[in-house]
Nucleic acid binder design. Structure first.
Lengths: 224, 224
DNA sequence: GATTGGATAAGTGGATACAAAAATACTTTT
DNA sequence: AAAAGTATTTTTGTATCCACTTATCCAATC
């Protein structure tokens, strides 16, 4: 299962796990460009193992939609077309909307405070121009979804975040700071505070769908 | 990538693919029980290959949530707890709701006729007690989602269908025929015909969420 | 009789080996 | 010099092998 919000600092139990994390991290940071071919032997050498565990990691990454595997033709970095980027955001909107709806009844004052804190931290990271913002942003969202108490849902959302992360980074690097972001996230907290689950779901859906076109402008004419 | 609605009759290009299909099919039909351990060598022998491709198939099946892989402890059939079953239906409700919403503007009279035909076929399969009903049911739903024109969304929905399929089969075997099913699916077609995307989304969500408790009564006190 | 300890068997993870397929470089032909 | 064919290299898919972990069985102990 793919890692996501839950940054597991634990040592990898197997070589396959190590390879998986290594490659996923590189993909998230945009170290490999879309369309680029990943050669198992090279990566294996890079992290000191044979190509077998790397091959297995490829399978998982392919299931996550991060790479494409074609028989006898190796592994290439997936990347998203514009349509696929929108699609990912559409899926996010309903899944994260659901997660918020389920989270609302479980939220308490402490958690709202915590979210305010995370928002402030995200804000700081944003102003310093650090690309840490992307991580903080995921952390903020992730904290809300965790409250839903739905492991598979969280996992799925997290996987979508990983897929779009490279594009979030590019976007963030170009437009210094998402101006609307602060207000939108504050509005999100307000919606949570209201206790109206359906309303919070609605706000989240709109927040996510509103982000897609902003990103799309910077998602370079992508492959495939 | 997991197969789903799109029954690919094509020959498997690789041994891994063959193993994947073989095991997935067995899981869908409930041939392996939840909690059962799958031994690579045995399965490999069964389909005449070494255990390497089977191992790789396991990875994909694990990503699909069909099996659980623990380091040094092998591969066990996942199965769903009651909570997880509900969770799967919650996710289905929003994802399939989205798919329908997107499908509505693309639907035409011919497609509505086609759906009527599929519904009739499902009905027939249901009356004959054939467990073909489950397949027909997936076919009916799948045809709608295909219209959404969102490959990843379709794939995701399809994966959820695979996960719940064993439970659908058990359910169907116990309660001869889902009485409400005919009406609900007819109502679905009516909603599609109305051309009101949001309304159709709503109907689909309720249809799916309404099914969960029916199934839950027959989902035996499951493991984990 | 249940529990613990340890020998033995079974299974897993990973490396290596090898055949087949694809990509590449190199001719040859026109 | 471009195109087509051929040889060579690279890479992939799969089988096999080995070291290490986990499971099973059986006896000794309480």
């Amino acid at each position: 299962m793919s890692a996501g919000f839950s940054s597991q600092p634990n040592a990898a139990a197997t070589a396959e796990e190590e390879a998986y994390r290594h490659i996923q991290q590189a993909l998230r940071l945009g170290r490999y460009k879309a369309g680029e071919r990943l050669i198992p032997e090279d990566i294996a050498a890079e992290i000191g193992m044979s190509r077998m565990p790397v091959r297995e990691a490829f399978r998982r990454l392919a299931s996550d939609g991060l790479v494409v595997l074609r028989p006898n033709r190796g592994c290439i970095v997936a990347g998203l077309t514009l349509d696929e980027l929108y699609e990912a955001f559409e899926m996010r909107s309903v899944l994260e909307g659901l997660a918020v709806r389920l989270a609302v009844p479980r939220i308490d004052e402490d958690m709202l405070d915590e979210l305010e804190r995370l928002l402030a931290r995200m804000e700081r990271a944003g102003q310093s121009g650090s690309s840490d913002w992307v991580v903080r942003h995921q952390e903020f969202h992730g904290r809300i979804y965790a409250l839903s108490g739905r492991p598979k849902l969280i996992h799925q959302i997290s996987a979508l975040h990983v897929v779009i992360e490279p594009y979030m980074r590019i976007w963030f690097d170009y437009v210094d700071k998402p101006l609307s972001a602060r207000e939108e996230h504050a509005a999100l907290i307000a919606a949570l505070r209201s206790g109206d689950a359906r309303h919070a779901e609605q706000v989240m859906q709109e927040h996510i769908l509103g982000t897609a076109p902003l990103l799309a402008d910077f998602a370079t004419p992508s492959r495939r």
